[in-house]
Simulated scan of single mutants.
Amino acid sequence: MGGILNSSIARKVAMALSGLFLVLFLLQHFIINFTSVLSAESFNEISHFMGTNFIVQFLIQPILIFGVILHFVLGIVLEYRNRSARPINYVRFNGSANSSWMSRNMIYTGLVVLAFLGLHFYDFWVPEIVHKYVESHPEDPTRYYHETVAKFESPVRTGLYVLSFILLSLHLYHGFSSSFQSMGWANKYAKGLRGFTVAYAILIPLGFIFIALYHYFNNV
């Protein structure tokens, strides 16, 4: 970790790789959650498998948590180093002339997304750990759908969920394509990659928003 933090190139590559890993996780997470709209039974079956599989629980899950921490620590370090490299505060700076709003505010959208991830872990992961390992309840393969839908009964919680995914969309809009650039993939396929990353940044967060609103209005 110390070597990564001290090397500019290593920081950018590690930031890109951890971001791409989280993008893959987000897609997998969306696919599983979307089954809750299609079939409660299928959602329960998949969730039960993910919640009891040894590889998922004790190998992939710790890697995911490490990836989240690494990505956001590197983001904060990069932002701090970039600001430190500009010691002179100009009286007037037209940032939009050289960069987009998203690129200039990645740290802020990222921090909001990090706060949402903390809430998400508190809302879903912590109760799951308590249910299985602290209170030691007998396993119920049919409980997952009901527990997930119940999270969207509150309009405040649902609204925060929607807002968080709007900000995640803005974060992905710039960050996803930047990950490929940081890894040197700016070649003749760059235009196609950019189109793909923009579509992903819009459609996947919209999908999560649809799931939240679908369950909320079904609960009303």
Rank of each mutant, 00 (worst) to 15 (best):
T158H: 01
L172C: 03
S84Q: 14
N44Q: 05
T142Y: 02
V91C: 14
L27S: 11
G51E: 02
P205A: 01
N6S: 15
G51S: 08
F210D: 08
G159M: 06
N98G: 14
Q57D: 06
F43A: 03
I4L: 02
Q28N: 14
G3C: 04
E147P: 09
G118K: 03
L22C: 11
T197Q: 00
I55Y: 13
I4T: 09
N187Q: 06
P138V: 11
F25C: 01
L24P: 04
I32K: 08
P141E: 11
R92V: 13
M50V: 13
I69F: 11
L117H: 04
G192A: 02
L206P: 02
T35K: 00
V112A: 08
F165E: 09
L70R: 01
R83V: 13
E153H: 12
S7G: 03
G159H: 08
P205D: 00
L59R: 12
S154A: 05
L119N: 08
V37R: 03
P141L: 01
H215M: 07
P62R: 10
G75E: 00
I69P: 10
F58T: 09
M15L: 15
T142G: 05
P205Q: 01
F217E: 03
N82V: 04
E153S: 15
G118F: 11
F176M: 01
A10D: 06
Y144R: 08
L26A: 04
I65T: 11
I9K: 14
V56H: 07
Y214H: 07
T158E: 02
L167W: 00
V112E: 10
K191W: 15
N105I: 03
P87Q: 01
W185H: 10
F93W: 15
G184T: 02
L70E: 02
G175N: 00
Y133N: 10
W185A: 11
N187Y: 04
M183P: 06
W185E: 10
Q28S: 15
V198C: 08
K132V: 09
I69N: 01
V68W: 00
Q61C: 07
L168V: 12
L170E: 09
G192Q: 10
L193Q: 04
L22G: 01
F152P: 01
P87S: 08
T35P: 06
R143T: 07
Y145E: 01
G195S: 05
V134E: 10
N44A: 11
S84G: 10
V68D: 00
Y80T: 07
Y145W: 10
F152G: 08
V13Y: 02
F25R: 06
S100Q: 10
T148L: 13
N94A: 12
I76K: 03
Y214R: 06
I69W: 10
K188A: 14
F25W: 12
S84L: 15
W101M: 09
